[in-house]
Computed example of a mutant assay.
Amino acid sequence: MLAEEGTGSPADNVNFISVWGYKITPGTMFSLQEDGIRAYSNEPHYITGKTVNTSGLKVIDCTIDKFRSGVTIGFADNEKLVQNCEATGTENAYWVGSYGTIINSRGDAVYGPIYTSQYESDKNCQIELTIIDKGYKKYGTHQALYLGGTNQNITLKSTESNPQEDLTIAVSGTKTGLRFLEGIEHKATSNTLINQTGYSVILGTKSTGCNIHSCESVTDNGTANTFTKLNCN
């Protein structure tokens, strides 16, 4: 992208400021592929042009590797199901928005989190994910998982031989990563997290009434949260 400097390209004309509000700097790496599996609620059909609705979406037995995101179907309406899928080498592996279920699925947290709540309005999800090691080297400043919203129930496991360095699990707190504006912090209310990984959990100031069951340490900066220590040896 920076090779366009001085050419008068669209990026050059805005001094390489991204639509997210930060400047692209040398050494920053982005995926050149968009999304593996993505859905919206109401959009024109690509052939007929007529508006169609995506609702009750099911994504089963799919593998995504080296895309910007893996399975991000949170914009689809009503209940959503992701089952037996794998998403690796992504800047965000999964997102199901509200009323979503993820079971028997996995991914890595190398270029981005395995799961991110995209909006603090996300709610009522049942999620089971496992962090796996695909041999990629960690890149970036993201979290292993970012949890916001309300009444989210997440179980996070890991089959990694060794935890990656500088990774934590965030419940509320500042969202970090390559494509996020600085200072984004979601509310997290009445969520339950079962953390069976080697990563510690940090609850942000906007977390309230969350129940954390964790093998590793928990730092609580929120209000009325509870913590149970798990024995994961």
Rank of each mutant, 00 (worst) to 15 (best):
I194W: 07
Q164W: 05
E34Y: 12
I169R: 04
T116L: 06
H213D: 11
N195Q: 05
V71E: 03
N191T: 07
S41V: 07
E4S: 12
N191L: 12
S121Y: 14
N151R: 15
K137N: 01
H213Q: 14
S41L: 13
T141S: 05
N42H: 12
Q33M: 11
D166P: 00
E165A: 11
K157C: 09
I17S: 04
F227K: 15
D220T: 08
A109M: 06
S207A: 14
N153M: 07
C215H: 02
A170M: 15
V96Q: 01
G198A: 01
L2Y: 03
T228P: 06
N13E: 12
S190Y: 15
T192A: 09
N195C: 10
I154G: 06
V218F: 09
L129E: 00
T63L: 11
T141H: 10
L81Y: 12
N84L: 07
K66M: 13
T228Q: 11
R179M: 12
K134E: 13
F180N: 14
L2N: 05
N225F: 09
R68P: 04
Y99T: 05
Y115H: 05
T101H: 03
T155G: 04
I64R: 02
E182C: 12
N221F: 03
V171W: 06
I114Q: 02
R68C: 08
N53Q: 09
L167M: 03
V171C: 09
K137Y: 01
T168A: 09
H213E: 13
E128K: 15
K175V: 08
Q83P: 01
K229M: 01
Q118C: 11
L167E: 00
Y46N: 07
N162Q: 13
S200L: 01
N231H: 13
E5M: 11
D65R: 08
I60K: 06
N92A: 10
K138G: 00
L32T: 05
Q118I: 14
D108F: 02
R106L: 05
